[in-house]
């Protein structure tokens, strides 16, 4: 490879620069909205009104961020995003953990303890991954009604766990089918039971897949708007719904800087999760694809 690089023709060099140029242009294009959001959130309302969308703020002001966090009005409440941020956290953390653990358990059974009809069962679960949100809203509402769960957070945890299960099951099942069944056989001969094999042997080697599920579920659940707006109410709403309310509250002047700051606050957790776990995500998705 290195030798080839030395003997590149002029044409190949030009082609390479063109590729870089195109890539850089795309990066700028995709980052532009983020840049606008960030710079707008640090501007004052006056500057937004008079200035250019793409210009940098003349002075950095955190007023908009403070307002977005603790005093902006979402509908009739004026407590900022903070309470809804915490709602989202309270909903997301249990939902992510439960759906990941149960998914791992499902995957373990569907790959290592096949039962009659387990393949059909898996197929049905797979179909679940193709079902759009909208399809399940009505039946879900009926079920929630029958269960008589009042608390918004509990309702959303349940909904997200159920909707997320087919994905987490799929991830774990597809990872565990690459694990040799002899590992389970060996453990059975060693005397380990169903749960011990799962917790002592399979779960510890599933870190990449666990990371995939955590990231996937965190993103899905945190960013969800539809379930949030339908199955929660009042002060139990998640941050996505609150952001919508904040942006759509139409009294007085539109505070673009606050809107932008609030939007960034709402997006921050998933950004952080990707920054920390992104490499695991790619590694986990390709785990088992290549031997080694």
């Amino acid at each position: 490879m290195a030798e080839l690089a030395y003997h590149q023709t002029t044409g190949a060099k030009v082609a390479r620069y063109v590729i870089y140029a195109v890539l850089i242009a795309m990066v700028l294009f995709y980052l532009a909205p983020l840049f606008v959001m960030l710079s707008t959130s640090f501007k004052s309302l006056d500057e937004i009104r008079t200035g250019n969308l793409l210009s940098l703020p003349s002075s950095i002001s955190f007023d908009a961020w403070r307002a977005a966090w603790s005093s902006a009005c979402t509908g009739i409440e004026c407590g900022g995003m903070a309470p809804y941020f915490s709602n989202s956290l309270k909903m997301m953390i249990p939902a992510v953990l439960i759906s990941t653990l149960v998914g791992a358990f499902n995957g373990y059974i569907l790959s290592m303890w096949r039962f009659k009809g387990s393949d059909t069962f898996f197929l049905l679960l797979l179909i679940g991954t193709f079902l759009p949100f909208q399809v399940i809203i009505l039946p879900m509402a009926q079920v929630l009604g029958m269960l008589e769960i009042e608390d918004s957070t509990t309702r959303l945890i349940l909904v997200h766990v159920i909707y997320g299960l087919q994905f987490t099951t799929l991830f774990f099942r597809n990872y565990y089918v690459t694990v040799p069944g002899e590992l389970v056989s060996a453990a059975r001969i060693d005397g380990a039971g169903f749960f011990r094999i799962f917790f002592k042997i399979l779960l510890p080697i599933s870190i990449p897949t666990i990371m995939v599920c955590l990231i996937w579920q965190t993103t899905q659940i945190w960013n969800d708007f539809l379930f949030g707006v339908i199955f929660s109410s009042g002060d139990g709403q998640p941050i996505t719904v609150a952001l919508n309310n904040l942006v759509n509250t139409s009294t007085g002047v539109k505070q673009y800087n606050v809107d932008m700051a609030a939007a960034i606050i709402a997006a921050l957790p998933t950004l952080i999760v990707y920054a920390i776990g992104g490499k695991y995500f790619v590694r986990g998705l390709t785990a088992g694809a290549v031997k080694g």
């Binding site: 040799p180 002899e182 056989s185 060996a186 453990a187 059975r188 001969i189 005397g191 002592k200």
Partner: peptide
């Protein structure tokens, strides 16, 4: 586990 046996596997099956 109750058969008083031990087994060596083709893939070794080490944990």
């Amino acid at each position: 586990k109750d058969r008083d046996i031990a087994m060596v596997f083709q893939s070794y099956a080490l944990y």
